[in-house]
């Protein structure tokens, strides 16, 4: 195992610093690397928490809880569920925005989830390698300081695009309540040019929630698995920011 890493590291001339080649992300021989800066970590956990709240509250907006007894004015169950949804949505939107801004000022790892280097053959070769690794066709994983190429694609599509879609459709739907003169409608009302009947926007927003459920499942599984199998810290890295290579 050690040999593999060493060989890989040698093949890349850059052996110092936080170690990256031009493509970004090849592993190095140092046991600990500072990868995720504080804003990235904060954004990650705030977003994760917001998304959980959004999923649960969103589900109960689509399928409300059983009727409560009493006078309407004495109850506000649906109101609270919707409040939770809107509040978490606003938080997610703000931190998603912060995360984008950080990509401009942060380290190069912070940019990784916002693009896919589609034009690089090497990248796709390594994607293939990762696919083979997950299909149990490779005995050894490659080491990466940041996301591996397959993970980068997953993060870009499953997180960045899906969440952006949810934020856009979410604000469009929210603008239905705030009215056509609101900034939400001015910014996101164009969604109704694509789906003139907002019932469709509801439906796609709902589908988007399930897409995020699927993403979260894979994301968490992959993190845990890599933590164990690739012998590099994944989960604790998102807390401390440092990635340890345990071999």
């Amino acid at each position: 195992m050690m040999d593999a890493v060493a060989r890989l590291a040698e093949s890349e001339r850059d052996l110092t610093g936080i170690a990256a080649d031009g493509s970004g992300e090849h592993g190095v021989g140092r046991p600990t690397v500072y990868v995720y800066e504080a804003p990235v970590r904060i954004c990650h956990w705030v977003n994760a928490f917001s998304i959980i709240v959004l999923m649960v509250s969103g589900y109960f907006i689509g399928t409300p809880l059983p009727t409560v007894e009493g006078e309407a004015s004495a109850n506000f169950v649906m109101g609270y569920v919707r409040f939770a949804h809107f509040a978490a949505g606003q938080v997610l939107a703000v931190f998603f925005l912060v995360r984008i801004l950080w990509a401009f000022v942060g380290n190069h790892h912070s940019r990784q989830i916002f693009y896919i280097p589609v034009h690089r053959r090497q990248f796709w070769k390594e994607v293939l390698h990762e696919i083979r690794w997950y299909a149990f066709l490779e005995r050894e994983p490659k080491m990466y300081v940041g996301h591996n190429p397959l993970a980068q694609i997953a993060m870009f599509v499953g997180f960045t695009l899906f969440v952006a879609f949810m934020i856009v459709t979410g604000f469009a739907l929210y603008s239905e309540g705030t009215g056509i003169d609101s900034w939400q409608h001015k910014l996101f009302g164009w969604v109704f040019a694509i789906w003139p009947n907002s019932q469709d926007v509801h439906t796609w927003h709902h589908i988007g929630m399930w897409a995020l459920v699927v993403f979260a499942t894979v994301h968490i599984y992959a993190a845990v698995r890599e933590d164990i199998m690739s012998r590099q810290s994944i989960i604790s890295s998102m807390i401390s920011g440092e990635r340890q290579f345990r071999d």
Binding site: T63, T203, H206, I207, W210, A211, V213, V214, T217, R225
Partner: peptide
Amino acid sequence: ADQIGMAAAGAVGAAVAAH
């Protein structure tokens, strides 16, 4: 959407478990 989503999530969950 729920039927599709639950089916997809279920399928992915099962795939993850198998993996």
